[in-house]
Design a protein around this nucleic acid. Structure first.
Lengths: 342, 342
DNA sequence: AATTTCCATGCAACCGGTTACATGAAACCG
DNA sequence: CGGTTTCATGTAACCGGTTGCATGGAAATT
């Protein structure tokens, strides 16, 4: 068996300092209650011998693990989508949690298929809270978790529960701004390629599109609304359908950048030009949006903000604060070549 | 304070079954040593009352946490690169670990800046092993970890240590195949845009390029080798430099797809065409490679294989097996439009 | 029938922390 | 000066598992 370096225990450190283990424990958890000299002695001795408190023992005694679970579905065979900026969320979340002394534990989706598998994992590991990244699949394992006493933050999917809240972008407002922008650049026949209507971002961006059409006094032509699935190929197909209309649009708002890029490809293939013939706005501001010629105008989501907001919300609940209200992050219009004035 | 559902303990379950806690423990850890009837009784009672073993207590007693740490640098301000398929690695790793009953704990890079911060985190949490995703930054915190008794697997970066191994792609072989393929389609003036020479993939792909030139009897023209940093913009700049040569190449092997796409843009901007004027091969097979017209020929890395291989290696070491030899994953040539025969 | 072996299980110490409560000394107060 | 506070620290139980060793009964052996 592999050799394991023994790590000093709290009692050993206590003996070396000539104090009790309780005092050492206080030095690390309640420094202000212990005498300054004693404290310094303990701290310096700890540094000298490389004492590290054992987290398992702490967790066992306190029932707080300083760990937050991350649930995100890795099963790409089932319908749903890759979150467009999973990596950024992860970075934001991780950074914000680290700053407050929390770690992130990955949980597989429905590990064993039972509906309470997440809740069980949380209980086994004494997780202090959970963050869930939506991907369009309605995972039944989420319900027991949301209904429980475990602090839970969901991204992009509203979930109900006493200790549950969510973070999302201002999808309605963003979509409205997209349409308003297209209108301002002179377009009048504005179509949209939506996300799946069962998903929150999909439904809300459509809502925003319709609202803004009404606000601008533009007629809503139902044939200008085509549903996609957030993936590139669906944007491509939807655009072909739109171009085949008797009266094709002169502008398209796609509810996701990938679909917008698929649409852009379809326009090019049809021998038309962006933005001369068709203007295009996406949503998300994925990295590629800036790279694909002529540059995709889009509604940028506050990517790092998702992680930060989720971390803040979950930590508030962990500390016993009231469940934070859902957090709606503002989006911002990034204008690029695809909506150049013509 | 938030209400916490109490979870049954092992002693409670034992009492309910009329056995000792030792027996219950054996039912879960060494089922074969306990009488079949007793075992069934314990299991069914456990299921009925929803007993869940407390992992912290287990870890405390056994010094095995069934957790593997993941180190990946989130600091994008320092020089380095985003790993081209971080997400796929994460999925592969997570899936493979879950299957064997391990969880993944995210560790921030150099959380507190001290060189042994990883090692300390590992000790505090009793992590059974660690996986490190290279991103081109030489993180000094990695050394103490590699030198320790902690099983450690590095991706794309060879690290030395008794319980340390690594997983990487066949960079030399892949690069050779790229050059061979370009040669086979009739190109003779083959340039390369390399990765940073201090990085392993960068150095090896250059090696493969040079080796294959020699094998094919092509002359090595030093001006046809330009160093990039794996990011798109560097590929763009490098390509401009190559096009400005007195005798520009008719083919370019870029050591990464992002650089290849940058190069492709530069070619287009110069009024030239891919593949008619310049053929292009990348490396990695990122998603975008298939999407950018005319389709980028590239060497696909076995993305899921990285995660799976890393998981297998770390688990072997955790179980006390001999440190596995470095694992070199084969690459495969994916031919797309950018190297069409002309 | 006595002895040995085997099987299933219990006992109790242990893992390394935390914390309610007790204690004793010093400071404060009328 | 006796009594009350305050402060710093120690004592010991506890968190919920695991596991070496002991035990007792049944089965096998002689």
């Amino acid at each position: 068996m592999r050799y394991r370096t023994p790590v000093a225990t709290i009692r050993e450190l206590a003996r070396l300092c000539g104090v009790s283990s309780a005092t050492v424990s206080r030095v690390f958890n309640n420094p202000e209650v212990v005498n300054a000299q004693t404290r310094e002695l303990v701290l310096s001795t700890a540094a000298r011998i490389g004492y590290l408190p054992n987290e398992s023992a702490r967790t066992l005694a306190t029932k707080r693990s300083h760990m937050v679970g991350l649930i995100w579905d890795t099963d790409h065979r089932r319908p749903g989508w890759r979150h467009p900026f999973f990596q950024e969320i992860l970075i934001g979340l991780k950074t914000a949690l680290s700053e407050r002394g929390y770690h992130l534990l990955m949980l597989a989706t429905s590990e064993d298929g039972t509906p309470d598998s997440f809740l069980r994992a949380v209980r086994r590991h004494n997780l202090d809270g959970v963050v869930f990244i939506d991907n369009g699949r309605a995972d039944p394992s989420l319900q027991p978790l949301a209904a429980s006493e475990v602090p839970c933050v969901s991204l992009d999917r509203p979930v109900q529960g006493p200790w549950t809240t969510y973070v999302t972008s201002d999808n309605v407002g963003g979509a409205r701004e997209a349409v308003r922008h297209l209108h301002a650049t002179g377009r009048r026949a504005i179509a949209t390629i939506t996300g799946p209507s069962r998903t929150r971002p999909g439904a809300e961006r459509l809502r925003g599109y319709l609202d803004e059409l009404a606000a601008l006094g533009l007629a809503h032509r139902p044939e200008l609304v085509v549903e996609g699935d957030f993936y590139l190929s669906s944007g491509h197909a939807a655009m072909r359908a739109l171009l085949a209309l008797e009266e094709p649009p002169d502008a398209v708002f796609a509810a996701g950048d990938e679909m917008a890029i698929g649409a852009l490809r379809a326009v090019t293939e049809a021998g038309l030009k962006v933005p001369e013939d068709i203007a295009l706005v996406g949503f998300d501001d994925i990295e590629l949006a800036a790279l694909v010629p002529p540059g995709l105008t889009t509604l940028a989501q506050d990517k790092a903000g998702f992680g930060t907001a989720a971390a803040a919300a979950v930590i508030t609940m962990i500390n016993g604060g009231v469940t934070p209200l859902p957090r709606i992050l503002p989006t911002s219009l990034v204008v690029r070549g695809s909506t150049r004035q013509i």
